[in-house]
């Protein structure tokens, strides 16, 4: 049977979930590969949800929120940008194509854009093949690494570092400062997580 990618989406209640509703009401068609978990805010999506999704068979993970500046909770979608940035970096470090994780903004009226984005993302994942395939990693290796990441993310030290980093970014309003965020993520989070994942290697 042809490969059908499995995609898990976390959609914020106010904008992206509503955009998906609008796509429905307007009958904008897109592939049925996406399954949706409704959250109140894209900022509710913890990094471990993303890795857990991959472990549970997702070939791609989609996070949808309000446009920056429109968050019902003011900062939630900014927080989501940090979480996604960090998670992408981790994916990269453990050999998984970070293109498998997508963060996107859609207002309640942008049904057609939502449908188009999901169509594109589905095609992208389809072209990458099952998780691990384009990465040249066996499924069990992928799962092992992902599980190690989750273990790592549970560690209080790493979590403290994550929390504090977010505080710094918020405090200094550095959300748009890419270099600053990358530096923070790499310095405080990637190194310890990599250690956890590859400790045996």
């Amino acid at each position: 049977m042809a490969f059908e990618p499995k995609i898990l989406g976390f959609l914020c209640n106010w904008c992206c979930y509503a955009a998906a509703d609008t796509a429905g009401v307007s009958r904008f068609q897109y592939p049925p590969n996406l399954k949706v978990i409704r959250v109140m805010c894209s900022g509710r999506v913890a990094p471990e949800f993303i890795f857990d999704a991959f472990i549970n068979g997702a070939d791609g993970v989609f996070i949808g929120g309000c446009h920056l500046g429109d968050c019902q909770y003011l900062y939630g979608n900014y927080e989501a940008t940090v979480v996604v940035k960090m998670s992408s970096e981790i994916l990269k470090q453990i050999g998984i194509n970070p293109d498998r994780l997508l963060l996107s903004w859609h207002s309640a009226t942008e049904g057609s854009q939502f449908a188009q984005k999901i169509s594109e993302f589905t095609e992208k994942i389809r072209s990458l093949g099952p998780l691990g395939e384009s990465e040249g990693l066996a499924r069990d290796v992928v799962v092992e690494r992902l599980k190690a990441v989750i273990e790592g993310l549970k560690g209080r030290k790493i979590r403290m570092a994550f929390g504090k980093m977010c505080k710094r970014i918020r405090g200094q309003n550095k959300y748009s400062d890419k270099a600053f965020i990358e530096e923070e993520i790499n310095r405080r989070l990637i190194v310890p997580i990599k250690e956890k994942v590859f400790k045996g290697a």
């Binding site: 805010c41 509710r44 913890a46 949800f49 909770y73 927080e79 994550f162 977010c166």
Partner: peptide, 24 residues
């Protein structure tokens, strides 16, 4: 919104109706 739940180092704070365990 649940931003607190995402960042709590110990998982002490969580948000009802969208708890970590429910989402998991």
């Amino acid at each position: 919104c649940g931003i607190c739940a995402v960042h709590c180092p110990t998982g002490a704070i969580d948000v009802s109706y969208f708890t970590n365990s429910q989402i998991k």
